[in-house]
Design a protein around this nucleic acid. Sequence first.
RNA 1: CGGGGUGUGGCGCAGUGGUAGCGCACGUGCUUUGGGAGCACGAGGUCGUGGGUCCGAAUCCCACCGCCCCGACCA
Length: 563
Amino acid sequence: MRLSQLFFTTLRDDPADAEMPSHRLLVRAGYVRQLGAGIYSLLPLGFRVAKRVEQVIREEMDRIGCQEMVMPVVHPADLWKETGRWYQIGPEMARFKDRGGRDMVLAMTHEEVVADLLRDIVRSYRQLPLMVYHFQTKFRDEPRSRGGLIRVREFVMKDSYTCDLDEAGLDTSYEKHYEAYSRIFERLGLQAIAVASDVGMMGGSAAHEFMVLNPFGEDVLVLCETCGFSANRQVARVRVSEPPGAAALPLEEVATPGATTIADLAAFLGISAEETAKATFFVDGDGRLVTAIVRGDMEVNETKLANAAKARALRPAQAEEIRAAGMEPGYGSPIGARGAFVVVDDLVARSSNLVAGANREGFHYRNVNVGRDYAPDLVADLTNARAGDGCPTCGAPVVLRNGIEVGNIFKLGTKYTAALGATYLGEDGLAHPIVMGSYGIGVGRAVACVVEAHHDERGIAWPAEVAPYPAHLVTVAAAKDPRVHEIAERLHDRALAAGREVLWDDRDESPGVKLTDAELMGMPLVVTISPRSLAAGGAEVTVRATGERTIEPLEAVEARLVG
RNA sequence: CGGGGUGUGGCGCAGUGGUAGCGCACGUGCUUUGGGAGCACGAGGUCGUGGGUCCGAAUCCCACCGCCCCGACCA
C-alpha cells in the first residue's frame, strides 16, 4: 500500500478531547475518527487491525468447535418481551417502531435470538452440545461513553453461545471458552487476568471477566500477589480481623451536635471509626427504601447490596425519603425505623456495642447491638474490599488495581431457554430446557487495549499478530539516487505478490516527517532505503518496539518482507 | 441525570463591545532531502444554533444543542 494513496492523515498535535494514550494515538496516527459521542469510524488502517484481531478470535473459536454465523442487529421487540428484558432494561436499549408501528429494538446482545433459533431447530439431545458465535454490531445507549474506543455506544462484539444438555455440559463449554480466551489475549499481546465477577442482570451461576490492568480502567480488581487470587471488587469477599467479642451493654443516648459524618462522630466521641456503624440509604426501582448498615470505617459496595437485597436500579435516597421511614439523615440507624428494608453487613452483625444514629438530630446511641436493638431483614457481605485486607484464600494482604474488561464469560443456565421454550427431548423422553452460556469480546476495545499495552512516547508499536501491515518502507532522498525508488517499489511489489502487503511511504515528504509518521503509525518493522543506506550495504531495518537498528543486504530484507 | 469544562478554518489555539487572527496542515512555483526544511504567492471561517441588548456582538444576556472530564449508571 502506497501511503500517497492511503485514506488517512496523521496529526501533529494530540486531539484536544483525547486523554487515554490509545485514544490519542489511534486518532493521531489515522486509525479512527469520531462521529459522535461513543461512535467511531474505523479508517482503513483501523479496520485492518480490527480484522486481524477478529481473525485471531475466529481461529481460537473455530479451534474449540464453535461455529461462526451471523444474527441480525434489528430485532422484533416481541422476542424481548417474551424474556421480559423489554421491560427490565432501561434507556440503554435503543427502541423504535417500524413502518407498521411494530416495536423494534437495536440489539445489545443476542441471547434471545439464539434461544429462538434453538427452539426452532433443536429437537433432540442428539443435536447437543452446540456452540455458535458471531461478530456483530451492538448498540448500547450508554449514559456516558468515554476513553475513545474503550467505552463506546456502537461497537462490534464477538459473542458466542454454548448450548448444552445439562450443567456438566455447560461446565465443559465454559472451560473451553476460558482456555480459548486465554489463548486469544496472549496472541493479542494482552496480559489479561481472569477474575471472578458479578453475574449482573444476565443471571446465571458463575462468571469471569478477562481484565487488563490499566490506570484508566473502570473496574477495581482485588488481587493477591501471594496466591494469585483475583476478583472484581463487586464480588470480592475479603477477610478482616474479627471484632472483639464483648457482652452487650445498655443502650445509651449521647448528644453529638453537628456530628453528621463518621469522621466527625469518631473525633467528637474520641473513638475509632471501627467502633461506629454507618447507615446508608437507597431507593430501588420499585420505590423500596433500602438501608445498608456497614462499619464506619468501610464503604458499601452497591453491587453487593443490590444482589443481597434482590434490588435493581438502586439510587441514593433523598432526605425526605429517609425521614419518611423514620430515620434522620446524618444521625440515621434502623432503630425505630419503619418501612425500610434493612440489610446489615455481616461484620456489623458480629460486632457489639457500636455507636449508631439515634434518628434524632444531634444524637447518637452508644452500645447498639444488632438483634437486640433492631432486627435486620438480611445479613450479608456488603462492603468494598480495601487494599491490605486479607485474601480470602490465603490471608495475605490484597492489592487493588484498576482494570479494563476485554472479555467475559457467563454461565447463563436456562433463563432464556426456559422463557422461550427452547427445549430438547432427552433420552428419558421428556422435554428439558437447553442450558446456555454466553461469552463476549469487544473487538474495538481489544484494539484499544493493545495500543495501551504497546506504545511509547513516539507512537504505537503493534505486535506482529495484529499490525495492519508487517512493515513500513520509508524512502529517503529518492531524488539523489534513482535506485532508492526502484528498490522500494520492487520490495513492495514482491511482498504483495507473496501475499504480504507492506506499507510504503512514497510521499514527497522530508525524512523527518516520514520517519516520525512511521513511528507514530507503529508497524513492527521500519525499513529505510536511502542513498546512505545503500552505500552502507542495503536498507536500514528498525524494530519499532525495541528501536534496534541494523543495516541488512537487500536480499535479506526482501526475504523478511516476503516471508 | 448531577458537578466541572469547552465550542473561532482540516488540527491545535489567541481574540472579553468597534475591519476575524496565529502556528501547523493545504494549493502553486522554485530551492531542499537521514529526524516534523526554506522562500514567494495563494485558497479556506454561517465564530455551535436560536433569540435578545446595543449605533455596533466571536465578545454582554437568555434558551437550546454538541463534545470532553468527574460522579451516578454500565446485559
